[in-house]
Amino acid sequence: MRTRALAVGIAAVMLATAGIASTAQAESSSEATCTQPTSAPVRGKELAWHDEFSGRTLDTRRWSTVMDFPGRAGGHYHNTSYGSYAVDENVVLSRGRLGLITDNKPVVGTDPAGTYQYTEGFISSHDKFFQSYGYWEICAKFPAGKGLWPAFWLIPQDRSWPPEIDVAEWFGSIEGMHSGLASGNWPDVRWDSHWSYGPVPTQGWHTYGVNWTTGSITFYTDGKPTSTITGSQIPSKPMYVVLNSGTWANPDRGGPPDATTPFPNTFDVDYLRVYK
């Protein structure tokens, strides 16, 4: 009897252990990010700069949370196309990932002064890292919801505009992902754009990248090219990275958030890597 009881006990422990392992594996799988092999545009290139977001707080040697580019209204507010004000507490690092939070919490801002309905997370590598050309990539998961407007983009270090390279710009109201180039001179700005539609960016982790060379820009999703721009409008000046969440304020492109928009929500980034 004791032998049988011991055998039953061992079997129970084995089943419980297997259950725990199975649960852990399922949780690990559900949390898996961008695990695909090295994509074609990375091969043969040297890693120039990166952040794996493995710390507890944002690395201020790499990033700033203050805006410094033409067209902004202040250091924490882009312009009237946005309904959100950037606050440092909306930049969160957890479990080796960056979370840029958008929340429906009205805030009284000082830079510029005013009351703003929504808050966002914003980081940029201005004055920290910038280069001309190369392959720039994030692994990310975008939030779902009407009026949400998170983005991964590049802008010139010299504070000029245009150009601007939008690598992955998500419009939640229309479930549209935009990538493209703004070029020319203000106010005569030329846009070369590519759009894709559907909820896929919000349903899992994907890589979004741009391979920028002399006279050519090619955009990638999960290592596969989605569109290419060529011509004399391709910029050559050094550019830096911006990652931000936020909300759309205008009536077009599906309009701003409404009662259906989930708050708070997060633009999650597992890593950012730049190659030369």
Rank of each mutant, 00 (worst) to 15 (best):
W212D: 01
L181T: 06
L272V: 15
A182H: 15
G114I: 01
I174P: 02
T38D: 12
M239N: 05
K141L: 13
N244S: 04
P156D: 07
Y275T: 03
L272D: 05
Y133C: 11
Y240V: 02
E46I: 12
K146N: 15
V108F: 07
S227F: 14
D103L: 02
G74M: 02
T35D: 12
M239A: 04
T230H: 06
E175G: 05
W195A: 07
I155T: 14
T266G: 00
I10H: 10
Q117A: 15
L243H: 00
T247Q: 11
G246Y: 12
Q117F: 00
F69L: 06
D166E: 11
R97Q: 13
N79P: 00
A249E: 03
G180Q: 14
P106W: 01
R72Q: 08
A144P: 04
K141Y: 14
S94F: 13
A73M: 12
E27S: 08
A168C: 10
I138W: 14
A40H: 05
F267W: 01
S28E: 12
K237M: 06
P256H: 04
N244C: 00
W170S: 14
A21G: 03
S160P: 02
S124I: 06
K128I: 07
A26R: 14
M239P: 10
S29Y: 11
S245K: 10
G254K: 06
K224C: 00
S196P: 02
A86R: 07
Q36Y: 09
Q131D: 01
D158S: 15
L148K: 11
V8S: 10
A73C: 00
V92Y: 10
V241D: 04
T226R: 15
R72S: 07
V87A: 06
G184N: 05
S132H: 10
A168P: 03
S236P: 01
Y82P: 00
N244R: 04
M177K: 06
E169F: 11
P112D: 01
V8I: 15
T65H: 00
H206D: 07
S84V: 06
I101Q: 14
E120V: 02
W161K: 03
A151C: 10
P201S: 02
E175W: 03
S81T: 10
S84T: 04
R43E: 02
Y220V: 11
V269W: 13
